[in-house]
Design a protein around this nucleic acid. Structure first.
Length: 457
RNA sequence: UCCUCAAUAGCUCAUUUGGUAGAGCAUCUGACUGUUAAUCAGAAGGUAGCUGGUUCGAGUCCAGCUUGAGGAGCCA
């Protein structure tokens, strides 16, 4: 007699029919005095136990939703059951130690809760159908990201989470110290009060690129901006890649290839999860055709358009909403997706003005624009930012000085250019936002296990 | 950080202009051998987010705070 996980039972159930097995999990539903649904976290599906002789096995009062249970019994084929199989038990054990009052007053009561309600009990929401489904998709996505780069012979570089660069100008930076309140004690601090939580691994990643040619980094990054929106977190996961001898068009192709690869894998491997999510959205009047949307993106070419052209198109809609040189904001994104290109495909915008892009991006011969891309997704907005990097020591130095940045701190980065003119390009992808898009979940805080954002730690 | 809106039972909500609160689900008690968030009958459950103010009287009006939602800015 062997213990099985419920996912495994569904995968190989034909081999287990009429065999005696052990399962352990928690009671998900209890119906009609005789049906107990058990879930063990390995799959969204429950396994139904049918008690034909209830007095013999367990007292009805002991059966409560949410409490841990062990069942030994025969797995039988049952046509009447929508899952085709169920267990006829010989033995049921309820594990003690639970607090029913606590469970029934928490988000775990047998009831629909809004996602913002689940967020009030972050440490319990893994037990819910909706959140466990999102976590399964997230897990697979992380795995497939590594798979993609591994298959394509990229080297994973673990760039540091603590560093001293705030070079990107990518918003506010968290300072770290070993001294508590230590503004006047810099020399006693472990990092001389220079330690920061990284906002991007890109600069370090470029140094690894000079030795390993095709590299990527995938880890948490931190922003101290006080931004409270559906798509911002203080701590989020970013995937960044840097490739030797790549030009802008290579980066565009690689980004598209990656997105299509990931969507394909999710579609193929997370069918149950996507079905559940569509059902979930429909039940609450947010009709989202997740699978159709992913399939469409896999099977179609992305729209590729220059910044200058998109500005012209935006000005055609309303001459006053934007000028050349302005960054594309979320109001502009809405117009782009709803009025200009009325289709739910990603849009690649290239050649942004240098005034709105960081110092390390290579400048085009027009001297006004950079060799840069952003990829926008419907509903979510910017998901990828990338560029060809500046490879001239002199030009890079000039731009660092013009941006009033600390040359001394960036010396190591500048010196990489002394290895010779090696063109290279890279991009960064906000992974949590990608999960938002895949799952159709509105708020980024609901696709992250432990969301960290202003006022919430 | 700014703007708008909201906060009533464990949950989702209702309480027509100010007169101390109701329903569904959950819970509890009972019934039920083919149900998919079962169903039926009954019971219990509330200092209306917090702190002040106006008023004979505040869930309702006003102010501040807290929390949440939507939008803006910044960005991934």
């Amino acid at each position: 007699m062997k213990k099985y996980y419920i996912k495994d039972i569904y995968d190989i159930y034909k081999k287990l029919i009429n065999k005696k097995i052990i399962i352990k999990g928690w009671i998900k539903y209890y119906r009609n005095s005789i049906f107990i649904d058990i879930n063990d976290g390995t799959t969204i599906k429950n396994l139904q136990v049918i008690i034909k002789n209830k007095k013999f096995l367990v007292k009805e009062k002991e059966i409560n939703i949410g409490i841990p249970i062990k069942v030994i019994g025969k797995l039988v084929y049952q046509k009447k059951n929508i899952n085709n199989i169920e267990i006829i038990p010989n033995y049921i054990k309820i594990y003690k130690g639970y607090d029913l009052n606590y469970i029934n007053n928490s988000i775990l009561q047998n009831k629909y809760h809004k996602l913002s309600k689940l967020r009030e009990e972050v440490y319990l929401r893994f037990r819910t159908n909706i959140f466990s489904t999102i976590m399964r998709i997230r897990s697979l996505l992380f795995f497939e990201i590594h798979n993609f780069f591994n298959k394509n012979k990229y080297i994973l570089i673990n760039t540091p989470i603590i560093n001293k660069n705030n070079a990107e100008g990518a918003g506010e930076v968290f300072k770290i110290t070993s001294l508590g309140d230590s503004n006047n004690l810099t020399s006693k601090d472990l990092f001389n009060n220079e330690g920061k939580l990284t906002v991007s691994g890109q600069l370090e990643l470029e140094s690894a690129m000079y030795g390993l040619a095709k590299v990527y980094t995938f880890g948490p990054v931190f922003r101290a901006d006080n931004s409270n929106t559906f798509k911002h977190l203080s701590e989020f996961w970013m995937l960044e890649s840097e490739i030797m001898y790549y030009k802008l068009k290579d980066i565009i192709n690689l980004s598209i290839k990656l997105i299509k690869y990931l969507f394909k894998k999710i579609l193929y491997k997370c069918k149950n999860e996507l079905n559940y999510l569509e059902e979930y959205h429909n039940k609450h009047n947010r009709f989202k055709k997740l699978k159709e949307r992913l399939t469409k993106i896999i099977n179609n070419k992305f729209i590729i358009i220059s910044y200058t052209k998109i500005i012209k198109l935006l000005k055609k809609v309303d001459n006053n909403i934007i000028n050349w040189g302005d960054d594309i904001g979320s109001n502009h994104e809405k117009i782009i997706f709803n009025k200009i290109f009325n289709m739910s495909l990603p849009i690649v915008i290239y050649n942004f003005p240098k005034c709105i892009k960081p110092f390390y991006m290579n400048i085009n011969t027009d001297s006004d624009t950079t060799k840069s891309i952003d990829i926008l997704l419907p509903d979510i907005g910017e998901i990828i930012g990338g560029s060809e990097r500046e490879i001239s020591y002199k030009k890079l130095l000039k731009r660092i000085k013009n941006n009033n940045m600390n040359v001394k701190d960036l010396n190591w980065y500048l010196n990489l250019r002394k290895l010779g003119k090696i063109s290279h390009s890279g991009f960064g992808l906000g992974v949590d936002r990608l999960i938002q898009f895949i799952t159709g979940i509105n708020n980024i805080r609901d696709v992250v296990p432990f969301p960290i954002y202003p006022g919430h730690i």
